[in-house]
Amino acid sequence: MESNNYSNVTFDYDYSDASNEIYPDFAEPYFMYVMTCIIISIGLPLTVAAIYSLYSQVQNNNVAPIYIINLFISDIIQFCCMIVLVAKPDGKIYEIFFYINFFGVMASVGFMVCIALERYLGIAWPLWYRFRSTIKISLAVCVVVWTLPLVYVLPYYYWVDHRVKNTISYVFLLVPFPLLIFFLGGTLKSLSAAISVSSDEKQRIVGMLVLVLLIYTLLFLPSIIWYLVGEDRHNDTFSKLTFILLRFSPLADLILYIFIRKGAIDKLLASLCCCRMDSDDKSRSSA
């Protein structure tokens, strides 16, 4: 089996002979290779820098950075696997790193749910969250999130029963979507009645939840649709689009760093306003 047959698939890849009939002669276009190299060169150093910066913010009463740090670690796994996959090794090496990358993707989805859940509990159940949210509990949750993708990935590597694999796929890939919507809706409802939360903090919380939902919807959901709609899997354009969107997800996760840093949004908006004012002044002086 040639290595270029592996690069088409995001979620439903079967390394059996039957996969050659489903994904015949797919070759990754050059623009996808270039785009992947750009994503790696930008995302990998920024992600490492973000982890180093967030590590100093972890406190017993502030466990939110723990989930984001683990999300970034799952992104680093994906970046490292991308480096190997774009090199296009042959046979078993490609297969191994494909599944490691798959493991990183599933872990990142899990930590996105944890981030949204943590924000929701902090607003909707503040007293419970204050006494129950500790570093030990957060680390235990992280261990569970790292373990769950193994339950999903290992069957793909060892099991032959396609119905079992498909059932696990539906459950694992579709559960985060309604959860993220629920957490966002519940947080918005609770924030309207929260008096002790400042307006800046409300903006940061809502912005983070909206961003998590957007990342999942725009970058992960197309691949899920591609998986569910089996008759459209021969559409190379759609499959390539979902594949490159999924590769953008580790880079998009870095935007969460803006919302976890206090004052970062204000600085960003201030810089944007300054740039706009400078452009307006230049246009007026030229007129």
Rank of each mutant, 00 (worst) to 15 (best):
V58F: 06
S271C: 06
L211P: 09
T36I: 08
C273V: 09
W128T: 13
L241P: 02
R163H: 11
I244P: 03
F183I: 01
P222K: 03
N4A: 13
Y158T: 12
L188M: 14
S7L: 13
L268V: 06
K202L: 07
I93E: 04
I40Q: 05
T147G: 07
I265T: 08
L254H: 01
G207P: 10
S279Q: 12
S192M: 04
D200Y: 13
M35K: 00
A252H: 03
Y170F: 08
S279H: 01
I225F: 14
R261K: 14
E118M: 03
M35R: 01
E201Y: 06
L121V: 13
I137C: 03
V86T: 09
S41L: 15
S286R: 07
I224N: 02
D236N: 13
W125E: 15
R130Q: 12
P126Y: 06
P178R: 00
P149N: 07
S286A: 09
L174N: 10
K262H: 08
I22E: 14
V105H: 12
I66D: 01
F183N: 04
Y30T: 15
R119H: 08
F98Y: 15
L71N: 11
L154K: 00
L148K: 02
F98E: 09
E2Y: 11
I224E: 04
L272M: 14
I68C: 10
G186I: 01
H162E: 12
F183C: 12
E95I: 10
Y13C: 15
D232R: 05
E21W: 03
A49Y: 03
C114D: 08
P250Q: 07
S279K: 03
Y6N: 10
V160G: 10
P24A: 14
Y30K: 12
C37R: 08
D253N: 15
A252V: 05
H234A: 14
N101D: 12
S74Y: 00
